[in-house]
Computed example of a mutant assay.
Amino acid sequence: MADGDAARAIRLGLLLLTELVTPMHEWLDGQRMYFRAQGYTEPEARAMAAATYVAVFGNPIHAPPNGRPQADES
Score class of each variant (00 low, 15 high):
residue 11 R to W: 01
residue 24 M to V: 09
residue 22 T to E: 10
residue 10 I to Y: 08
residue 48 M to F: 00
residue 61 I to C: 02
residue 66 N to F: 00
residue 32 R to G: 03
residue 38 Q to N: 12
residue 73 E to D: 15
residue 59 N to I: 02
residue 37 A to W: 08
residue 53 Y to H: 02
residue 65 P to V: 05
residue 15 L to Q: 15
residue 21 V to S: 15
residue 36 R to G: 04
residue 4 G to M: 01
residue 28 L to I: 05
residue 72 D to W: 05
residue 35 F to T: 03
residue 51 A to L: 05
residue 64 P to Q: 13
residue 18 T to N: 11
residue 4 G to P: 00
residue 33 M to P: 06
residue 1 M to I: 08
residue 6 A to Q: 14
residue 4 G to I: 03
residue 2 A to M: 14
residue 71 A to Y: 06
residue 13 G to N: 08
residue 7 A to H: 07
residue 67 G to H: 07
residue 45 A to E: 04
residue 30 G to P: 02
residue 39 G to N: 10
residue 7 A to M: 14
residue 40 Y to L: 12
residue 52 T to P: 03
residue 60 P to H: 06
residue 60 P to A: 05
residue 63 A to F: 05
residue 36 R to I: 12
residue 21 V to Q: 13
residue 37 A to H: 13
residue 48 M to N: 10
residue 14 L to G: 12
residue 8 R to E: 06
residue 69 P to Y: 08
residue 21 V to D: 07
residue 5 D to V: 06
residue 25 H to D: 08
residue 43 P to T: 01
residue 7 A to W: 03
residue 9 A to C: 08
residue 69 P to R: 13
residue 51 A to V: 02
residue 7 A to E: 05
residue 22 T to P: 05
residue 65 P to S: 11
residue 56 V to C: 06
residue 45 A to D: 04
residue 39 G to V: 08
residue 58 G to C: 07
residue 19 E to R: 13
residue 69 P to S: 10
residue 10 I to D: 10
residue 7 A to L: 11
residue 61 I to P: 02
residue 67 G to T: 02
residue 6 A to H: 11
residue 27 W to A: 04
residue 14 L to P: 02
residue 30 G to T: 03
residue 13 G to L: 04
residue 31 Q to C: 06
residue 53 Y to F: 07
residue 5 D to R: 10
residue 57 F to W: 04
residue 30 G to V: 00
residue 46 R to P: 01
residue 5 D to H: 04
residue 42 E to K: 11
residue 62 H to A: 15
residue 17 L to C: 08
residue 54 V to I: 09
residue 24 M to Q: 11
residue 34 Y to F: 09
